[in-house]
Simulated scan of single mutants.
Amino acid sequence: MPEEVVEEAWNRFFASLAPLREAGKLGYLHFGLPPWTEPKPRSFRYLERLAERTQGYLVAVEFRNPRWYTAWGFVKRELMRLGLAHVSVDAPPHPEAPPRVLEPTREVAVLRCHGRNAETWKGPHQKPYERFNWRYSEEELLDLAEATRTLAAQAERVFVIFNNNYGTQGVEAALGLKRLLGLGKPPWAEGPFS
C-alpha cells in the first residue's frame, strides 16, 4: 500500500479513539496477530513499528500461533523492551491454538477468552461465529476466575475479554466471571427495578 494511504488510515484510527481517550474510557488497544503470523524477523520488525506508531497508548498483542511460545523467554523480553502488553489466551485444547500463558509484560494484563470449541477451532465451519460458539460451564468459569486472580497478582489492572460471541454467550460468561470474582452487579442492573 502507498505510504500516504497507511498514514491516513493511522490518522483516522487515532482520531476515532480521541473521544474515548479524552473521556478516560480507553483501556488499551488490542492487536491480534493471525495464526499464520510466526515469530520471524519480519514479525518482530512489525512489533517494533507498532510500538513506535502507538507511543502514548497501552497496546496489547495477542499471538494466535502457538510457535510464539516455543521461545517465550525471548518473546516476553521483546514485548517488555517494546512496552507492549501480552494477551493471555483462553482457547480450546488444540495443537494449533496458543497455550494459556499467564505472564504479563506490563503493569496491565489481558485475558482473552475465545471459548473451548476444539472441533471448530480450525474448521470446518461455514459461518465465522461457529468457531467461537461456546458456552463456558461453571467449572470453566471457576478456572478463568483463578487465571484472572493469577494475573491480578502480577499486574495493577486486568482486562478480561470474551470472544465466545455467539448469541449472548460472551455476556453470560462475563457476568458469571464477575459474580465468581465478587465484583457485584453490573451498573445497568442497579436502580429501583433491580
Rank of each mutant, 00 (worst) to 15 (best):
G73P: 11
R42N: 12
L33S: 05
P19F: 02
K178C: 15
F14K: 13
E140C: 08
L84C: 06
L111V: 06
E156N: 14
A91N: 06
E119F: 15
Y46M: 08
K40T: 04
S16K: 14
A145L: 09
P39K: 08
E103G: 04
A109C: 05
K76Y: 01
P128C: 05
W36P: 05
R49H: 12
L84K: 08
S43H: 03
G73Y: 10
R49M: 15
L20D: 01
R64P: 02
D143W: 12
N165T: 06
S43A: 12
A91E: 02
A18C: 07
E140I: 03
F44C: 06
G184V: 08
Q55P: 09
L151N: 01
E190W: 14
T120H: 12
W68T: 04
P95K: 07
R135D: 12
T37Q: 14
R49N: 14
V101I: 07
W68V: 01
V59D: 03
E107V: 10
L29V: 04
L20M: 03
A60V: 03
V6D: 15
F74E: 05
R67W: 09
R49K: 14
W72S: 04
R149I: 10
V108T: 05
R45Q: 14
P99K: 09
L26E: 00
V101A: 12
V110S: 00
W72Y: 06
T150K: 02
V110D: 00
F13D: 12
W10P: 02
R45A: 12
E190C: 12
G191P: 09
A97H: 01
F63N: 01
L17I: 00
V61C: 11
A23S: 03
E107K: 13
E22M: 14
A109P: 00
T54K: 13
P39D: 08
V87R: 05
D90K: 01
D143V: 10
W36V: 15
A174F: 07
V75P: 01
F63Y: 04
W68Q: 02
A189E: 07
R135E: 09
L102A: 12
G176K: 00
L47S: 02
P192K: 04
V160G: 01
P35A: 15
L26Y: 00
T37E: 13
F162L: 04
P39S: 09
V171L: 14
R179Y: 09
K122M: 11
Q169R: 10
Q126A: 15
R100S: 15
Q169I: 15
V101D: 08
A15V: 04
F159L: 13
M1G: 12
G32R: 02
E4L: 12
L17D: 03
P92R: 06
W72M: 06
G184F: 06
F132N: 03
K127F: 12
V158Q: 01
L175F: 05
N133P: 11
A71I: 11
L50S: 01
N133W: 08
R77A: 13
